[in-house]
Amino acid sequence: MSRITARFAACTAENRPALVTYVMAGDPDLETAQAILDGLPAAGADVIELGMPFSDPMADGVAIQVAGHRALKSGQTMRRTLAMVENFRKKDAETPIVLMGYYNPIYIFGVADFIAAAKAAGVDGLIVVDLPAEEDEELCIPALEAGLNFIRLATPTTDERRLPAVLRNTSGFVYYVTMTGITGAAIKSRAAVGEAVRRIKHHTDLPVAVGFGIKTAEDAQVFGRDADGLAVGTVIVNAVAETLNDGKPTERTVTAVHDVVASLAAGARRARSAA
């Protein structure tokens, strides 16, 4: 059983959604990002998405765009991102880490080399925004063969006809994008999200996490009723941005991120007990 599968099962056993937290590797600098990453499980994160910064993040809103640029400016590279995972794994053998980003930095690293290095570092899964099912031969299939989970995004435009193709090579969990839009935008219909989660679960036994637009503990409480996982990124990344002074981290940066995560975790825990 992969770490991801085990963690979702554990959360389900506790009758609560898993909190999936996104942080940008290398934001605002390597040392601070490592401290943020290392403290996430204690703050309440169940699964960690570690963003691989990219110069042209076409599916992301301003907050994550800017976070990626901060990371790149501080000298973040793919090797450094993998090293962050390796360091994390020395202290935590349980919490799953999913690398999330865009294909080009992986392609340039070399697909086979990347998969080997990610495995060795202790990565559990991959989310690559610009690799739809039609391009599975590129990375998805070799990653699955190597024992990494490949987590696919399903969206409001993924209809019944297409859903089986999208789910075919998906493993670990399904990431349902709550809206047509970019990260950090507003969710248009809460009811539609719950419906969509049920629709996807009709097609798969995999856990379904929802993301894009979850911002508060209250959101976590509401969406956590239907979803097996809640993915949160923009508000966490914003906590970094808001505590910087002249682009540099302050003593509040790491704790501000962990406070946001703790608040979301509390909301997620109330999701089903309050119902």
């Binding site: 610009d130 391009e135 409001p156 994008v177």
Partner: peptide, 20 residues
């Protein structure tokens, strides 16, 4: 049929755009 010219081209887009 995969939109390739040799190894070039393809459909490297987010799932939201894929059906479109």
């Amino acid at each position: 049929e995969h939109g390739r010219f040799g190894i070039y081209g393809g459909r490297f887009v987010a799932e939201t755009l894929m059906p479109l």
